[in-house]
Write a protein that binds this DNA or RNA. Structure first.
Lengths: 223, 223, 223, 223
DNA sequence: AATGAATGAGGCTTCATTCAT
DNA sequence: CATGAATGAAGCCTCATTCAT
């Protein structure tokens, strides 16, 4: 009575075999999207597996648990950010003469900021994750994110400090300046996302550098 | 784990009776702290009730469900923000002469920004909630938060636009400027929180206004 | 689409409310039977709850997890065993004259052994649990069982030692003798259980004491 | 947790090829140790395969399922026990004269008991398995174990009955006596194992026979 | 008005087993 | 012969919510 049918005749989606590292990468990719779409807590492992077209057990062959998936995502990012930031040449002895024209400086800052942002904002998904969803997960994940944040802030802080020594920038707490600058950029991105506007990093960087360097006061007033 | 277990006989706390509106307010107050401490998803109703020293059923006499508690929190805030912002006098015909000294302008901006911030940042708890945890809850809560954000951004945007017309501020997209300014401030607050530094709104506003108005370029370079 | 029916019209067994301690006791009682019938590992929490006519969550209001249920069962037993053993008067200065007739000694031993056994063998369920199923669960449970075993063995060992000093019993390692005696009894019980024979503690004790005291050699041979 | 995860790239152990019967024997050997160490239910197939240094599929080429492995283990044992017991000569017409000296009888019993025990207690692993872990697995395994138990008990019962007819042993239910004797021995072994004492079958048999034959009452009391 | 015992849907995770290579 | 990636049923446990007192 009520013997479980030994072979369910449902189409039972065909297994696919992938090399371990490929599968792992695929899962991470899917997980990122799912976490972004639904938020870490609301998304469930089943969602990820369904979208990755794998069984639930498969995910657990590659990650210890749900949190570990998120952690891997964040660590992957942290690694990339760190390496990108490390790769940047130090600001050094000024690109041109000591009397560089303003445009040159602006251009330089723009490039510099863009490099930092590119490291983190690989794609919209990562971005949302970092800026919103990944917060408040217990322990380790939080720390990795904090690490990424610190990496970026430190890189910017260092740049600012050097530029101050070179008398390019005014005096002021470089740490706070870095926070302010990064925050401004992030908010522009986030709001754009929230409003379903396109996220155009180029113009965002443009605005940020312009605002940051010159302020918004009119020339006549400041005199 | 955090659900109270009848195993260890607790002395069965004495009932307390409160007037309906007082009880409701008390629950909201506790809920805010709990949500902040643990994050909306991780915090559970039991936590709130335990900390509020009420039975689980009591909470449900005042709120339909967990989400409704958060929603009430956000709506309370939205209302306050809206009223504070409405109460501010329009920038109008300039407080002083058309040729106001720079200090005056700086002071005015500072006051103006501070008013906006005070509306939202009533306390650290609310602040964390708004800036981090309340994101990504399905539907209604998200909208309320988005509303608050929009309220602030619009208020700032309006100010900026007027100041531009008064030739106090340079040209530039006032919407982006508002986002940038608010983002900068928020990031300074958030980072301070994350680093367990004290959050001193006064000096944060100070830095923000200074940076925003004048930029960070040295005078000699910009010429 | 596919909205979950808000009120399932299945008979939805009527809730019953019990006082916390009563419910806890009831759950333990049911759990004991279920563990016995199916074995700890094979039995699942759902089984217990179904038989106790409670929801699955209810069990977890009284116990941290499945293992804790078993642990409680064992600790309850350990407590009872300890108190029963403690309550027994020490063997003391012999019940009768130094020249007690053999029957008296036999009777005394029988009573003494019976007391020990009664402490543990409250019912067939407990018995099976202790002798067979409760072994090999990680950690704590094992220890409690080992404790019970040790309690009994020590009680018997003490008795034997005293009786040896009183010259009632021959010399010999009292520890080993205790183990041997207890093991013999347990095996008789277990085999009876396994063969679906009735477990008659009276006659089992009878046989055990008789065998243990006199051995099985015929009188003529031993001379 | 104990399932091998492809996360940490292991060097992918070199395949080894074995003849079918050798591989089968090796798996059984490993399985026995693993079952003993962790208990049948807690041990998992992955454990066995890892320790046997084979892939998971390999095990299933030799056994239908996990239970079949345990079953094979038990059947192997049952076969050996049966053959050993069959090989023993019947007690027959007394080894010596009808008036055999006590020492002779003792020695004979000792040898006889030892033979039975040796059949089962091939090694500590088998022993633990038989006495503790193998109980309560559904169906077939239980039966095999019960069979082994019955084999031993019957062999001892037969011996006892014959010895009674030869007037070597006193009257008494030979079935119960066999159970008691075997139980005593088993308990001594088990307790030793539980206490991490060495299991010295020789002295255990010594004690058992001595106790069983002569009892523990002093000579003067029994008169 | 207040309570807290009771509930069960739903989430996470394990692991015996299958199967393409 | 051997492998190990893939699978999903099944188990444990949590927690928002209900409801009799």
């Amino acid at each position: 009575m009520s013997v479980p049918r030994p072979k369910s005749r449902q189409p039972r989606r065909q297994r696919t075999y992938l090399r371990a590292d490929v599968r792992r990468a695929q899962i991470l990719d899917v997980a990122k999207r799912v976490f972004v779409r639904r938020g870490y807590h609301v998304a469930n492992v089943a969602d990820i597996c369904k979208e990755a077209r794998i069984g639930r057990g498969t995910l657990y062959q590659y990650f210890d648990n749900k949190q570990a998936v998120m952690l891997a995502l964040m660590e992957e990012l942290a690694t990339r950010v760190a390496s990108v930031l490390d790769a940047r040449p130090p600001i050094g002895p000024l690109p041109g003469a000591s009397k560089a024209p303003v445009e040159m400086i602006v251009g330089f800052c723009r490039k510099r900021l863009r490099e930092v942002l590119d490291a983190v904002f690989v794609d919209e998904a990562t971005l949302r994750l970092i800026l919103r969803d990944a917060r408040g997960l217990d322990g380790t994940v939080d720390e990795v994110i904090a690490t990424i944040d610190r990496l970026m802030l430190r890189a910017m802080e260092r740049d600012i400090k050097i530029a101050q020594e070179l008398r390019l920038l005014r005096k002021g707490n470089p740490r706070l300046i870095a926070r302010y600058l990064l925050g401004g950029v992030e908010k522009m991105v986030l709001t754009a996302l929230a409003n379903d506007e396109p996220v155009d990093l180029d113009s965002i960087v443009e605005v940020a550098v312009e605002l940051e360097l010159f302020g918004i006061l009119t020339e006549e007033v400041r005199r």
